[in-house]
């Protein structure tokens, strides 16, 4: 089974981050939610492995709850 890559894997992380922000530029929260949903579905299909997606979901959920605790 392939695992979620948890180490840096993008040669130019700054550029990718900028692209994501640019895509959301000028969008309302609602429009951004719609964009994110499409993005998640597109990337999930590209990944093609339910286990990897589950690991990613777990990591995201843990990060959010840790963030909430910190507040």
């Amino acid at each position: 089974m392939t695992h979620l890559i948890q180490t840096p894997n993008l040669p130019d992380a700054d550029a990718v981050y900028a692209d994501v922000l640019a895509a959301h530029e000028g969008q309302t929260l609602e429009e951004s939610a719609a964009l994110n949903a499409r993005l998640i579905l597109i990337l999930a299909n590209h990944i093609g492995e339910a286990d990897v997606i589950r690991e990613a979901l777990e990591m995201a959920k843990k990060s959010v709850s840790a963030d909430n605790r910190a507040k």
Partner: peptide
């Protein structure tokens, strides 16, 4: 949010 995902699927 489940509505948002559903509509995203139908649209795509």
């Amino acid at each position: 949010i489940s509505h948002v995902f559903r509509d995203a699927v139908l649209d795509l």
